[in-house]
Each structure stands twice: as C-alpha cells, then as structure tokens.
C-alpha cells in the first residue's frame, strides 16, 4: 500500500507541473497584458521598458516561467501586479473564505444527494424516482448565477430575511462560524453553490445503486435470507467507489471556488480573486491560483483513489 501511495504521489507531480505550464502559456497567448492596467496611454517606450523590468516581464517567457517555478517551489508565489500584495497571502485568505462556502456546500449537497440518489435507486421507476430525477436535472441545469440572483431578490430584497452580499458587517476579518449573525451571510451562497453538485451526485448515486441492485450477488444475498438493511449495506458498499469518484471531482470544484457565485454574492474567495486576476491579466495571481486549483484536483483524485482502494481493494491501480 505504501509503495502504491508513493507511486501515486509521484504521478501527481508531473500533472501539476504540466497544468502550470499549459496555464502559463495560455495566459500569454490570450490577448491583453497586465501592463494595460498600469500604464497611461501616452507611456513612452522608456516608461514601458522600466515597468516591464520592475515586474520581471522583460525576460523571455520560458525564463519567466522557470523563475516563477523556482520561487513557487520555495513557497514564494510572487507579488500581485494589480494589488502589490503577496500572492501567497491573497490566495491563503481567499482560500479560507472559499473553504467556508465549500464546506457548507459539500455538507448540504453530498448528504442530500446521497439520500435522494439511494432512495431513487431503490425505488427505480416509481414516482419518487421521477421526482428525484427531476430535482437532479433542475439542479444541474439551472445556471447558478441566475439562482443566486433569484435567491437574493427573494430572501434579501423582498423578504429582507438574509443579507445580499459580503461576509458580514465587518467583512472576513471578524467572521466567526459560531456567530449566527455571520452565518446568515453564508446561507444563500451555500444553497446556490450546492445545486449543481447535488444534481450530479444524486444522478450518479441513483444509477450506481440501481445498477448494483441488478447484480447477481444481491439476488444471492436475498435468497440467503439476509435482512433488507444488511443487503442495503452491501449494495451501497458496492456502489460507493463510483459515487466517491464523482464526489471527489465535485469536492475539487467546490474548493476551487466559483467565479459566478462568489461574484454575485461579493464573497472574497478564490473565484472572486480569479475573476479579478483574469480581468487585469494579473499573471502572478493567475499562476498562483491555477497551481493551487490543479494541486487540489490532483490531491483530491489521489485521496479518492486511496479511498476507493480502501473500500474495494480490487480497484488498486498498478
């Protein structure tokens, strides 16, 4: 098992590296550059050269990448061109804010989706199955920025029950998950963020449970006279690797933050940060966030693989 984990970790390194190279290249291929937001229109060539030098943009692109990578390995992600703040500090802060939303959304969507999916899988073809499938399709299909705005209009503007934006009266600096006043700010973005993963996981769970129920070993268990609850445990255990794989992906998406949801709710997380960095072509921030997201996916997939192997040792990849 240890050798397997070491091998998987080693596989993860070139993946993260490859993602960072692709992203670095794509940023430079896209039209626009970070100097547009810094330089006045009548900046002379001398001024432009000076600013390029100040931000290390005068060097060849491969050299810029290597310089960035060598620093990143040491934990230094550079300085944001737009804000002048340390990228690592910006990401750490944004990530902690996104984690608050992601944790809530994971709890809500995973539990709801699991219950709905198992129910629909067991009651395959019934009205309950159709209702759950309908909920799942709606969850996947409704654009979350639209849903977010709808919830704001309903609960913030019309009913005046919940706040429309931000992380509380004093922002994230004093945010406390134990304070109900602060947690009111979390409800609407968490519900909005939960809808898509809820829909995807519910559909996957339903399909996995329904497929497992049709397998021969379930007939055998029932024929042996096992109680329904015991049979259900076996069914879920066999369906679980498939469900975990999808949950793992959704986990990565949620931790990566949502540009749309965080912008609609003015939630200062990684999605909000990424959106700002894209608009200003803030290369150090874009690179830092991208590396972080890629690392999340790689680590999450690794953990899911390990979990799947623990649940079903036959799934170990060689």
């Amino acid at each position: 098992m240890t050798a397997y984990i070491v091998r998987r970790v080693l596989y993860a390194i070139p993946i993260a590296l490859g993602v960072s190279i692709v992203c670095f290249t794509l940023i430079y291929l896209a039209p626009g550059n970070p100097l547009q937001t810094l330089l006045p229109e009548n900046a002379s060539a001398e001024t432009i050269d000076m600013i390029k030098k100040a931000y290390g943009l005068d060097k060849p692109i491969p050299l810029q990448y290597l310089t960035w990578l060598s620093r990143a390995i040491m934990g230094d992600l550079g300085i944001s061109i737009a804000s002048g703040r340390k990228v690592s500090e910006e990401i750490a802060k944004a990530l902690s804010n996104t984690m608050i939303l992601a944790t809530g959304a994971i709890g809500l969507s995973f539990s709801l989706a699991f219950i709905l999916g198992v129910t629909a899988g067991y009651l395959n073809g019934s009205w309950a199955d159709r209702v759950v499938t309908g909920i799942a399709v709606v969850g996947v299909s409704v654009p979350n920025y639209w849903l977010g705005m709808l919830l704001i209009i309903c609960f913030a503007v019309e009913l005046q029950l919940l706040p429309a934006a931000g992380m509380g009266p004093q922002g994230s600096s004093t945010f406390n998950v134990l304070n109900p006043q602060h947690m009111r700010h979390v409800l609407l973005p968490v519900v909005t963020l939960s809808m898509i993963p809820m829909g995807i996981i519910a559909r996957t769970t339903r399909a996995a449970v329904a497929e497992t129920l049709n397998q021969d070993f379930v007939q055998t268990l029932r024929a042996k006279g096992l109680k329904a609850r015991t049979v259900a445990v076996h069914v879920i255990k066999n369906a679980l690797p498939q469900i975990l794989a999808v949950m793992g992906l959704q986990f990565g998406y949620l931790l990566g933050g949502s540009i749309l949801v965080e912008t609609v709710f003015t939630w200062p997380g990684t999605g909000f940060l990424l959106n700002k960095a894209i608009l200003t072509r803030d290369i150090p921030v874009l690179q830092g966030v991208t590396l972080m997201l890629a690392t999340f996916f790689v680590v999450t997939n690794l953990l899911v693989d390990l979990l799947q192997t623990a649940v079903n040792p036959r799934m170990q990849r060689h």
Partner: peptide, 18 residues
Amino acid sequence: LIPMPEATTRAAALLSNQ
C-alpha cells in the same frame, strides 16, 4: 468603501439595507 463589481448585487445590497 466596499468593492461590489456585480451591478445587480449592488442594487440588492441597497434594497436590503447593507
């Protein structure tokens, strides 16, 4: 001073007394 780039959110924040 609160940055709020989304115009609909700004209007909602005003209507909800934020």
